[in-house]
Amino acid sequence: IRVFLPNKQRTVVNVRNGMSLHDCLMKALKVRGLQPECCAVFRLLHEHKGKKARLDWNTDAASLIGEELQV
């Protein structure tokens, strides 16, 4: 999953079965001084340019493999 972060940063996270978005993104956020409780995560909708859909931090990350997200 490719993730666009604040301050023009980005990362790619690996996903294993059973992991939530929170689990996958925790380290990437922590390294940058961010906390999931203070952030929202969105899936970028490529079929609708510029649109995005808000996701819950408990979403199964395996269902988002190959997607691009924005925090």
Rank of each mutant, 00 (worst) to 15 (best):
27 K>T: 12
3 V>K: 05
70 Q>L: 14
11 T>V: 15
19 M>C: 07
42 F>R: 01
30 K>D: 05
38 C>F: 11
1 I>Y: 08
69 L>A: 01
50 G>K: 07
26 M>E: 15
13 V>L: 05
58 N>F: 04
22 H>F: 04
31 V>C: 11
2 R>S: 14
29 L>I: 04
62 A>N: 04
30 K>H: 10
49 K>Q: 13
28 A>L: 06
17 N>A: 15
9 Q>R: 04
23 D>K: 08
31 V>R: 13
66 G>K: 07
51 K>R: 12
65 I>K: 03
10 R>A: 14
31 V>T: 15
19 M>S: 10
7 N>I: 10
71 V>I: 09
64 L>P: 04
23 D>P: 00
26 M>W: 15
28 A>N: 04
55 L>F: 00
65 I>Y: 04
70 Q>K: 11
21 L>G: 01
28 A>K: 09
34 L>Q: 02
6 P>Y: 06
63 S>G: 10
43 R>K: 12
27 K>L: 08
38 C>P: 01
58 N>T: 09
23 D>E: 14
68 E>P: 02
1 I>C: 05
18 G>L: 00
66 G>Q: 03
17 N>F: 06
12 V>K: 07
33 G>S: 04
56 D>E: 08
45 L>A: 13
65 I>G: 04
55 L>G: 00
18 G>W: 00
35 Q>F: 09
64 L>T: 01
63 S>L: 11
46 H>S: 14
37 E>R: 08
2 R>M: 13
63 S>K: 12
7 N>Q: 06
29 L>F: 04
8 K>L: 04
22 H>I: 08
28 A>H: 13
25 L>S: 03
42 F>T: 01
6 P>L: 05
60 D>Q: 06
63 S>M: 05
20 S>Y: 07
13 V>T: 04
17 N>L: 07
25 L>I: 06
15 V>W: 03
35 Q>W: 05
2 R>G: 08
43 R>I: 02
36 P>L: 06
57 W>G: 01
20 S>M: 02
26 M>K: 14
56 D>G: 07
55 L>I: 13
40 A>V: 13
55 L>Y: 02
46 H>G: 14
43 R>N: 00
66 G>E: 06
60 D>Y: 00
58 N>Q: 11
50 G>P: 10
69 L>I: 13
5 L>A: 01
66 G>L: 00
31 V>M: 10
38 C>A: 14
42 F>K: 00
22 H>E: 12
54 R>M: 12
61 A>M: 05
66 G>T: 04
62 A>M: 15
71 V>S: 00
70 Q>N: 04
7 N>G: 13
51 K>V: 11
50 G>A: 09
34 L>I: 06
20 S>P: 03
46 H>M: 09
31 V>K: 11
63 S>P: 09
40 A>F: 04
43 R>H: 13
42 F>Y: 14
6 P>W: 00
61 A>E: 04
67 E>Y: 05
59 T>K: 07
62 A>H: 08
7 N>M: 06
33 G>N: 11
61 A>L: 01
35 Q>Y: 09
20 S>T: 15
6 P>Q: 00
31 V>N: 10
36 P>S: 07
29 L>A: 00
3 V>G: 02
67 E>K: 09
14 N>F: 08
19 M>T: 09
38 C>G: 13
5 L>N: 04
7 N>D: 13
21 L>F: 03
36 P>H: 04
59 T>P: 00
14 N>C: 08
16 R>A: 13
40 A>R: 12
38 C>H: 14
55 L>M: 07
28 A>G: 03
22 H>Q: 10
64 L>N: 02
11 T>I: 15
49 K>S: 11
56 D>M: 07
69 L>H: 07
56 D>S: 11
44 L>W: 05
9 Q>K: 09
19 M>Y: 09
35 Q>C: 10
28 A>R: 00
45 L>H: 15
48 H>M: 07
27 K>D: 13
8 K>V: 00
2 R>W: 08
52 K>Y: 14
55 L>N: 02
70 Q>D: 04
42 F>D: 03
46 H>V: 09
40 A>N: 14
21 L>K: 00
18 G>A: 02
11 T>A: 12
29 L>Q: 00
27 K>C: 08
43 R>C: 10
39 C>V: 05
69 L>V: 08
42 F>G: 03
17 N>Q: 15
24 C>A: 09
17 N>Y: 13
17 N>I: 07
16 R>L: 09
11 T>E: 10
44 L>D: 08
49 K>M: 11
4 F>T: 14
38 C>V: 09
4 F>Q: 10
52 K>H: 07
64 L>C: 14
68 E>Q: 09
18 G>R: 04
34 L>T: 01
59 T>L: 08
35 Q>S: 15
61 A>N: 04
6 P>S: 00
48 H>G: 15
30 K>L: 13
14 N>V: 10
43 R>L: 09
27 K>Y: 08
62 A>F: 15
37 E>V: 03
56 D>I: 03
55 L>C: 06
20 S>W: 05
41 V>T: 04
46 H>K: 12
36 P>F: 04
42 F>N: 01
45 L>Q: 15
22 H>T: 04
57 W>F: 03
62 A>S: 14
13 V>Q: 01
22 H>P: 01
65 I>P: 04
33 G>Y: 05
9 Q>L: 00
42 F>L: 03
10 R>L: 15
60 D>A: 06
9 Q>W: 00
39 C>Q: 01
38 C>Q: 13
37 E>W: 05
71 V>P: 03
14 N>W: 09
37 E>F: 02
33 G>T: 05
65 I>C: 11
46 H>C: 10
11 T>F: 11
39 C>G: 02
20 S>K: 09
40 A>D: 15
57 W>P: 00
21 L>S: 03
9 Q>S: 08
62 A>V: 11
46 H>Y: 11
42 F>H: 01
51 K>I: 08
59 T>G: 01
49 K>G: 14
35 Q>I: 08
14 N>K: 11
57 W>Y: 03
41 V>F: 02
53 A>D: 11
26 M>P: 03
25 L>F: 07
21 L>Y: 04
60 D>W: 01
28 A>D: 12
69 L>G: 01
54 R>C: 06
44 L>P: 07
61 A>H: 03
10 R>P: 08
14 N>S: 09
41 V>K: 02
58 N>I: 06
36 P>M: 05
50 G>S: 10
37 E>L: 02
53 A>Y: 09
26 M>H: 14
37 E>H: 07
45 L>Y: 11
18 G>Y: 03
44 L>S: 11
54 R>V: 09
60 D>N: 06
6 P>F: 01
59 T>S: 07
64 L>F: 11
34 L>E: 01
22 H>G: 12
23 D>G: 05
53 A>M: 14
3 V>Y: 05
27 K>N: 07
2 R>A: 07
13 V>F: 01
5 L>K: 01
3 V>P: 08
46 H>A: 10
54 R>A: 15
21 L>P: 01
52 K>S: 10
15 V>C: 02
26 M>D: 13
23 D>L: 03
58 N>M: 09
33 G>P: 01
36 P>W: 10
30 K>I: 12
38 C>W: 07
21 L>H: 02
41 V>D: 05
53 A>W: 08
54 R>P: 11
7 N>T: 01
20 S>Q: 02
53 A>Q: 14
41 V>E: 02
42 F>E: 06
56 D>L: 05
58 N>S: 11
48 H>C: 12
41 V>P: 02
26 M>R: 14
14 N>A: 14
4 F>G: 08
71 V>E: 03
7 N>S: 07
27 K>W: 11
53 A>F: 10
58 N>K: 10
45 L>P: 14
48 H>Q: 15
3 V>R: 03
8 K>N: 12
50 G>H: 15
20 S>I: 02
2 R>E: 10
37 E>D: 03
68 E>W: 00
12 V>I: 10
62 A>G: 12
34 L>S: 00
45 L>V: 15
60 D>G: 02
42 F>M: 07
43 R>Q: 09
35 Q>A: 13
68 E>L: 06
71 V>K: 00
66 G>C: 03
56 D>Y: 06
36 P>Y: 10
14 N>D: 11
8 K>I: 02
13 V>I: 10
34 L>A: 01
35 Q>G: 08
31 V>W: 06
70 Q>M: 10
65 I>Q: 09
18 G>F: 00
29 L>P: 03
33 G>C: 03
36 P>I: 05
54 R>W: 08
67 E>V: 03
15 V>F: 07
49 K>W: 03
68 E>I: 10
17 N>H: 12
11 T>K: 06
41 V>S: 03
66 G>M: 01
30 K>G: 04
61 A>C: 05
31 V>P: 05
27 K>Q: 13
11 T>W: 00
28 A>T: 13
64 L>A: 01
40 A>C: 12
8 K>D: 15
53 A>K: 09
22 H>L: 12
63 S>F: 06
57 W>H: 01
20 S>E: 05
12 V>W: 07
25 L>D: 02
10 R>G: 10
61 A>Q: 00
57 W>D: 04
45 L>K: 15
5 L>C: 02
67 E>F: 03
37 E>K: 06
49 K>V: 11
1 I>T: 09
61 A>W: 04
28 A>M: 06
46 H>L: 07
26 M>N: 14
51 K>F: 07
2 R>P: 05
52 K>E: 15
65 I>W: 00
55 L>R: 00
29 L>G: 02
53 A>T: 13
2 R>N: 12
64 L>K: 01
34 L>R: 00
20 S>H: 00
1 I>A: 01
38 C>M: 15
